[in-house]
Design a protein around this nucleic acid. Structure first.
Lengths: 341, 341
DNA sequence: CTGAAAGCGCTTACAG
DNA sequence: CTGAAAGCGCTTACAG
């Protein structure tokens, strides 16, 4: 308990006021710059601030203004390179607008997500950027109903009226499958996260649509609960066998890498034997050999749009919700090639 | 401004008190559980809490207790897979102990670091985990002098008396170089971040020590300001030419990947022509082909140690500083092989 | 065991 | 343009 004497930002606004010979209210006014203060007074105050190295206590001001200048960022797995980039980009944009960011890792577990949501509100964050774990989590709905500023990121829940920044997942899935079809593939499998994960269902639909459009019957969709390289390796089991596909579209890069490993281990070469497409456009895609063809998301632009939309809502500049949908782009690597035979 | 009516966690402790027919003080007591409250009273209160779905305002309690139950995490680049893992691990441990974490990305720029440090203090975070950008940043020193709980992570500043969790960087560098020497290499270069980056100097020293121990004269140390795959590609320029090394030790995996790419682009094969060792043990190392031999850091253990040490200091259970040094382990991939010829 | 009161460090009407 | 006062939502001695 003794530590406080030392730890706390101990010089207070009252100290500054005394030193400057004014009232605390005046100090507050010059620091916030939203009221008229006589120039000599302002100078005195600034001088005192300087001399005492005063730093305002944000907790105290937040208590009265109801603004913490902090944002929550709720993500399934920040160590997934896609979300790691998201953290970086959102943090950059938020900082640029004077906000700090609290990072929350849900592992896509709704209970965890719910706890975080509630904790973030107790902490009074001004808004939340979130990649929700399930369609229609009740916790999310409650937050929304409360009118709490929130922006979904990368994952959309179509049944909710919410601000959302994402990529056109349907089109992403479509681009991926069409690319493979154009290369002559007919047996094109998909490896997916559970379709309860928002946006995944759209990627699947896009994939399906391309297949149907090309008159291809019979799809193979493998699903894995977890998203990790290991999970990709495991789920790739279902791709082996005599009737194996000549191409695989994976719902994200991490799974694609796992699949690539497994195929190689089984003596199948990419793209000679099996072509592979990922999703997200992470660093992983450019680092593997062969480089992975992937559906890239413009993370930086998306982060900027999300933070701006959120802050606009916080500031009351914008009300009502909007969906901002970016176009994904097919980034061709060397993991895709003509269908064998 | 109207939004507040809706947004704020509007039911307050006073509301609960009224509903339960007690004083706010009593509500506070039952919620914090550190004072004796008669069983019937506690029940009434809990019932009211339940009915009103009351959630305490953490800002308000923090203002009086001086504890925000939040930690700052100051890192150079959260999109670097090593630090992305650090975010995940630190967040996990922090959450486990009831702390939230504010993530700050410095890009290794001292001015940015300084701003974050000051902002974190204004926000009253209870402690900070940081990978400092420069030896002896004055901002860091000031934070330390103020007695603010801080734990350096992965990067140490030997001149400061600070709690620090890291890997034995000297030994890491030594292990890397010795591994190459044992494979018969004599021309072993190193690619490094600037030696002003804490801990990098130790890796270099370890590398040097192994060379000297083996009686190898003439070292080559290339330095790059930035840490990115691109920077690795660029700096690898210096490795080419007739007298090129047969092995390269890179101060981190990201740079190693860049070097690997450049070598390949130049028609040099790893490990046939050039062996490569990285540092950190990130996912990148296991994903490239050939897999990268790397000096792995036990991130999860380190994160746990760091958060525990920090919280102990916050709780006043532990005072004084300590350095906790984990052993790095050489994780052999396929990027290292016998020296050619 | 419980309540009244003071106070954490700010901001903001309200007067003047 | 500036100050005194009230209040943000809690916690914590202090009485009883």
């Amino acid at each position: 308990m003794d530590a406080f004497e030392v730890n706390s930002v101990s010089v207070t606004m009252t100290d500054v006021a005394k030193r400057a010979g004014v009232s605390p209210a005046t100090v507050s006014r010059v620091l916030n710059g939203n009221a008229n203060v006589a120039e000599p007074t302002r100078k005195k105050v600034l001088k005192a601030v300087e001399e005492l190295k005063y730093q305002p206590n944000l907790l105290a001001s937040a208590l009265v203004t109801k603004k913490t200048k902090a944002l929550g960022l709720v993500l399934p797995d920040v160590s997934n390179p896609f979300f790691a980039e998201v953290v970086r980009a959102v943090e950059r944009e938020a900082t640029g607008l004077g906000y700090s960011v609290l990072v929350c890792n849900t592992d896509d577990r709704p209970e965890v997500e719910e706890r975080y949501l509630s904790d973030l509100r107790q902490r009074g964050v001004d808004g939340i950027v979130a990649a929700p774990s399930l369609e229609g989590t009740s916790a999310m709905e409650r937050v929304l109903e409360a009118g709490y500023p929130i922006c979904f990121f990368a994952r959309d829940v179509p049944t909710l009226a919410v601000t959302c920044v994402k990529v056109d997942d349907f089109r992403g899935g479509y681009l991926a499958a069409r690319h493979l079809i154009e290369l002559g593939h007919r047996r094109i499998a998909m490896v997916s996260e559970p379709r309860t994960v928002p946006s995944v269902a759209d990627r699947v639909r896009g994939y399906r649509h391309a297949l149907q459009e090309a008159g291809i019957e019979g799809e193979t969709i493998l699903t894995t609960e977890e998203t990790s390289i290991r999970a990709g390796i495991v789920v790739a089991e279902g791709l082996l066998g005599p009737n194996r596909p000549t191409a695989v579209f994976c719902a994200n890069d991490v799974l694609a890498i796992g699949v690539m490993h497994r195929l190689r281990r089984e003596g199948l070469e990419t793209p000679r034997d099996v072509s592979l497409v990922g999703f997200d456009g992470t660093v992983l895609a450019s680092v593997v050999d062969p480089t992975l063809t992937t559906i890239a998301q413009p993370i930086d632009q998306m982060a900027r749009a999300a933070v701006e939309a959120l802050v606009a809502e916080i500031d009351g500049v914008r009300d009502g919700t909007q969906r901002i949908v970016f176009q994904p782009v097919l980034r061709e690597g060397r993991s895709t090639g003509p269908a064998p035979g």
